[in-house]
Simulated assay, not measured.
Amino acid sequence: MSDQHSPIRSFGRLKSRPIKPRQAALLETLLPKVRVPPGPVESQGLMPAARETWLEIGFGGGEHMAAQADLHPDVLVLGAEPFHNGVASALRHLDERGLANVRLHDGDVRDLTGRLADASLARIFILFPDPWPKSRHHKRRLVQEGAVAEFARLLAPGGRLRFASDWAHYVDWSLQRIAANPAFRWTAENADDWRTPPADHITTRYEEKRLGDCAPVFLDFVRN
């Protein structure tokens, strides 16, 4: 399948270490309450008073997603993550903060985005996704031309897309593909705009581990 037509797809492990008892209990009790229901996804049905709807693709342990939802209680925050342990961790954050404005999709993000209407999102976050550094695995990267086209469909005019990574090649790869789509405008005006975390960014424990080959880079785009 060519890069241009590659859909959004989640790759990687679905489960690793044993899940702690408290988180396992939340998978049984809380997840069914906050899981995005089947069928077309409409904010009016999930959160009638929502000012906007945001999506985080691959929320990891859920720290950033939960913190943003806590800071913006009038925003419906959708999160997609196939990694079972990450979902369990996110549920703990939702439970501890008592958040009522988050809905989770515990699976491939394509199953969620395909049910979202055109121009239904105000923000999309893709933060430190799996870089798939080996050349033969680049086709597994989330950011492909087809995925960028889907982001453009989902974002309303003036909506924002943020990509962050600490792998230099993935940063260059993503910048080329997103900037090549005329629906997006890169907001950076100088080097500090991508080297310095945005004012509204929430640093996570994963980010602090610095597992990549460069300092974190933040690419912000606006939907034309």
Score class of each variant (00 low, 15 high):
residue 207 E to K: 08
residue 189 E to T: 13
residue 60 G to E: 07
residue 130 D to Y: 08
residue 130 D to I: 12
residue 87 V to N: 12
residue 120 S to F: 05
residue 32 P to M: 12
residue 199 A to L: 10
residue 104 L to D: 09
residue 187 T to D: 08
residue 39 G to V: 11
residue 165 S to Y: 02
residue 17 R to E: 14
residue 159 G to H: 06
residue 31 L to Q: 11
residue 154 L to M: 07
residue 83 F to S: 02
residue 180 A to T: 03
residue 138 H to G: 08
residue 145 E to S: 15
residue 105 H to S: 13
residue 210 R to F: 04
residue 126 I to H: 02
residue 224 N to P: 02
residue 20 K to S: 13
residue 187 T to I: 12
residue 4 Q to V: 14
residue 182 P to Q: 06
residue 199 A to N: 02
residue 4 Q to E: 15
residue 41 V to Q: 05
residue 134 K to V: 07
residue 30 L to G: 12
residue 116 L to N: 06
residue 56 E to H: 08
residue 221 F to C: 08
residue 21 P to L: 06
residue 75 V to N: 04
residue 117 A to I: 06
residue 96 E to A: 15
residue 3 D to E: 13
residue 82 P to E: 11
residue 13 R to F: 09
residue 137 H to E: 08
residue 75 V to F: 05
residue 33 K to A: 13
residue 106 D to W: 15
residue 122 A to Q: 15
residue 167 W to C: 00
residue 194 W to D: 03
residue 34 V to I: 15
residue 111 D to A: 15
residue 219 L to V: 13
residue 207 E to H: 11
residue 177 R to P: 01
residue 53 T to P: 04
residue 178 I to C: 03
residue 12 G to K: 05
residue 7 P to H: 04
residue 1 M to W: 10
residue 58 G to F: 09
residue 35 R to I: 13
residue 137 H to P: 05
residue 194 W to M: 04
residue 58 G to D: 13
residue 184 F to Q: 01
residue 91 L to P: 14
